[in-house]
Amino acid sequence: MARDGNPQPPRRVELKDAEWRARLTPEQFRVTRQKGTEPAHSSAMCALFEPGRYACACCATELFDAGSKFDSHSGWPSFTQAVAPDVVAYHDDSSHGMTRIETTCNVCDAHLGHVFPDGPAPSGLRYCINALSLTKC
Rank of each mutant, 00 (worst) to 15 (best):
Asp4Leu: 14
Gly5Trp: 10
Gly5Leu: 03
Asn6Gly: 07
Asn6Ile: 08
Pro9Trp: 12
Pro9Phe: 02
Pro10Trp: 03
Pro10Cys: 13
Arg11Cys: 05
Arg11Thr: 13
Arg12Ile: 14
Val13Leu: 13
Lys16Tyr: 08
Ala18Leu: 05
Glu19Lys: 00
Trp20Thr: 13
Ala22Phe: 08
Arg23Lys: 15
Arg23Asp: 11
Leu24Thr: 08
Leu24Gln: 11
Leu24Asn: 06
Pro26Met: 07
Glu27His: 07
Phe29Tyr: 15
Phe29Asp: 02
Arg30Asn: 09
Arg33Pro: 13
Gln34Met: 13
Lys35Ile: 07
Lys35Trp: 07
Gly36Ala: 08
Gly36His: 07
Thr37Pro: 10
Thr37Ala: 06
Glu38Asp: 11
Glu38Asn: 01
Pro39Asn: 12
Ala40Met: 13
His41Met: 11
His41Tyr: 15
His41Glu: 07
Ser42Tyr: 01
Ser42Cys: 03
Ser43Leu: 05
Ser43Phe: 12
Met45His: 06
Cys46Thr: 15
Phe49Pro: 05
Phe49Ile: 06
Glu50Pro: 00
Pro51Thr: 13
Gly52Val: 10
Arg53Trp: 01
Tyr54Pro: 06
Tyr54Ser: 01
Ala55Pro: 02
Cys56Arg: 11
Ala57Ser: 13
Ala60Ser: 14
Glu62Asp: 13
Glu62Leu: 11
Leu63Ser: 02
Leu63Met: 12
Leu63Asn: 01
Phe64Leu: 05
Ala66Leu: 12
Lys69Phe: 12
Phe70Arg: 03
Asp71Val: 00
His73Ser: 12
His73Cys: 04
His73Arg: 14
Gly75Glu: 13
Trp76Ile: 09
Trp76Asp: 02
Trp76Val: 09
Trp76Gly: 05
Pro77Gly: 06
Ser78Lys: 04
Phe79Gln: 06
Phe79Arg: 05
Thr80Glu: 11
Gln81Pro: 04
Ala82Met: 03
Ala84Val: 07
Val87Met: 04
Val87Asp: 03
Val88Pro: 09
Val88Tyr: 04
Ala89Cys: 11
Ala89Trp: 11
Tyr90Asp: 02
Asp92Thr: 12
Asp93Gly: 12
Asp93Trp: 08
Asp93Met: 11
Ser95Glu: 15
Ser95Gly: 08
Gly97Thr: 09
Gly97Leu: 12
Gly97Lys: 11
Met98Lys: 04
Ile101Arg: 09
Ile101Tyr: 02
Ile101Trp: 01
Thr103Met: 03
Thr104Asp: 07
Cys105Ala: 14
Cys105Tyr: 10
Asn106Arg: 05
Asn106Asp: 08
Val107His: 05
Val107Cys: 11
Cys108Ile: 10
Cys108Thr: 07
Asp109Leu: 05
Ala110Arg: 01
Ala110Leu: 00
His111Trp: 10
Leu112Val: 01
Leu112Asp: 01
Leu112Gln: 04
Gly113Met: 02
His114Met: 09
His114Asn: 07
Val115His: 03
Phe116Gln: 05
Phe116Ile: 00
Pro117Gln: 00
Asp118Phe: 02
Asp118Ser: 09
Gly119Trp: 02
Pro120Cys: 09
Pro122Asp: 07
Ser123Tyr: 00
Ser123Gln: 14
Gly124Ser: 07
Gly124Gln: 06
Leu125Cys: 06
Asn130Trp: 00
Ala131Pro: 06
Ala131Asp: 12
Ser133Tyr: 03
Leu134Ile: 06
Thr135Leu: 14
Cys137Thr: 15
Cys137Ser: 14
Cys137Asp: 15
